[in-house]
Design a binder for these strands. Structure first.
Length: 407
DNA sequence: ACCCCATGCTCGGATTGCTT
DNA sequence: AAGCAATCCGAGCATGGGGT
């Protein structure tokens, strides 16, 4: 599955609920390297819909330009195979839609570029494949735009806000002039989409472009999506914000695993929150009655409110939901060792928690095996914890500075 | 010839939610 | 409550191919 793809699916608006579910499951079956080709039976089962209804929604999604279907046949046997589904964020999708001549845009090469079977085809109406011209994503030019001299000239001297059309156009050319492979692409669709963005979106698209390119490179993507796709799908939102980029990168980690527990311990090693609520009226009464001491109340409050991030992790873990954990802790976490929840070592760890005033783990709500910093035979948990803290000292320093800065 | 596979499509009926 | 539209569902047929 692809988180990016499902994330994209969930952001689509204006679809019927069931169509959105179909799109989501399609994206769930999408693999960045291999594509997406679930059988209709599989998809229908995923969506808990009958196949007939599934087809209705597939048609809707195709008409909305959110998917393109491509029938496949086995090369050897010519037997029909499950349909391949393409998405707008895939390079092939863009090329099919952008270069196919349309009644309004009028652009496109003479040769067919669709990978669909030539017969039946969109033109003859025997719609076993998509009707490319029904794609509403590609919109007609609403205002004349100068694609050549005007834009380039302006780009040379223009440093003002992107508020009027000419300046926005200039910014467009500055951004795309070095776009990989843009020479051979049609320019107009990209410019049209660009002009529809808000000033703020154009700025974000520009600022984040280098980070986005770097991200593609890191992902070893061989193809850079066309500018029109980048603008239309707002792909820059997937790239780290230059400000946010300074923060540690994270990964999704399951509860009680190495990285999850390392994150939990790292959070506990940070200074606790200071906005701890005072005793409630009931607690004050209990203190007056001698049933509780003020210190006990404060201790309980600290456990409940002192490390909100840890409590949030505990809540997620109760629902078996993972947590985003900083990858900076991964190396230190690799030394963690499994501890059984019914073992004396687990008890010793919880005793260490209590000694430090930390929230403990409930034996009944944890996994059977939990990872803790490695502890030698006869050694107290505190020693293992100390080694872990040493190993992540840089991370903790950065976090403390970050928290101070944020405060 | 018959069956199978994977898909596209249509139809009538049921359900649901909204409006009057 | 009645009417209406949207949505969903199950059944069935068609297409284009392969396998036996």
């Amino acid at each position: 599955m692809s988180f990016d793809a499902t994330n994209w699916a969930i952001k689509q608006r204006g679809l019927r609920p069931a169509a959105k579910i179909v799109l989501w499951h399609l994206c769930d079956r999408f693999h960045p390297d291999h594509g997406c080709f679930p059988s209709q039976d599989t998809l229908a089962e995923d969506c808990e819909l009958p196949r007939s209804t599934l087809n209705v929604h597939l048609n809707d999604l195709e008409a909305a330009g959110l998917i393109a279907r491509e029938q496949r046949r086995s090369k050897g046997t010519r037997r029909q195979e499950s349909t391949r589904y393409r998405f707008p964020f895939e390079p092939g999708f863009e090329r099919q839609n952008a270069e196919k001549p349309g009644p309004e845009t009028g652009h496109g090469s003479d040769e067919a570029v669709s990978r669909n079977q030539p017969e039946p085809c969109p033109e003859n109406g025997e719609s076993r494949v998509q009707n490319l011209d029904s794609n509403p994503v590609r919109e007609p030019v609403r205002e004349p735009v100068n694609l050549r001299e005007g834009g380039r000239e302006a780009s040379e001297k223009n440093e003002q806000p992107l508020s009027d059309a000419k300046k926005a156009e200039a910014a467009f050319w500055r951004l795309v002039k070095n776009w990989p492979g843009f020479d051979g692409m049609p320019k107009e669709p990209a410019l049209v989409v660009w002009m529809k963005l808000t000033d703020d979106e154009r700025e974000q698209a520009t600022v984040r472009f280098p980070a986005w390119l770097a991200m593609l490179k890191a992902q070893k993507k061989s193809h850079v999506p066309a500018p029109s796709t980048y603008f239309r799908e707002k792909l820059w939102t997937a790239a780290p914000d230059p400000v946010e980029a300074a923060k540690p990168k994270s990964a999704v980690a399951g509860p009680f695993g190495k990285l999850w527990m390392a994150t939990r311990f790292a959070e506990l090693m940070l200074p606790h929150a200071t906005n701890i609520p005072g005793p409630t009226g009931f607690e004050q009464a209990q203190i007056r009655a001698g049933k509780l001491t003020l210190a006990q109340v404060r201790e309980q409050k600290l456990i409940r409110f002192g490390w909100p991030a840890v409590n949030a992790m505990h809540e997620s873990a109760a629902d078996r939901r993972p947590t985003h954990c900083p990858l900076a802790l991964e190396e230190a976490a690799s030394d963690f060792r499994q501890v059984h929840r019914d073992s004396p070592l687990f008890d010793a760890w919880m005793a260490e928690h209590q000694r430090r005033g930390w929230p403990t783990l409930d034996r009944r709500r944890v996994a059977e095996w939990i990872y803790f910093p490695s502890v030698e035979d006869g050694e107290a948990p505190a020693a293992g914890l100390e080694r872990f803290v040493d190993a992540i000292s840089d991370y903790l320093t950065t976090r403390r500075q970050g928290d101070e800065h944020a405060a």
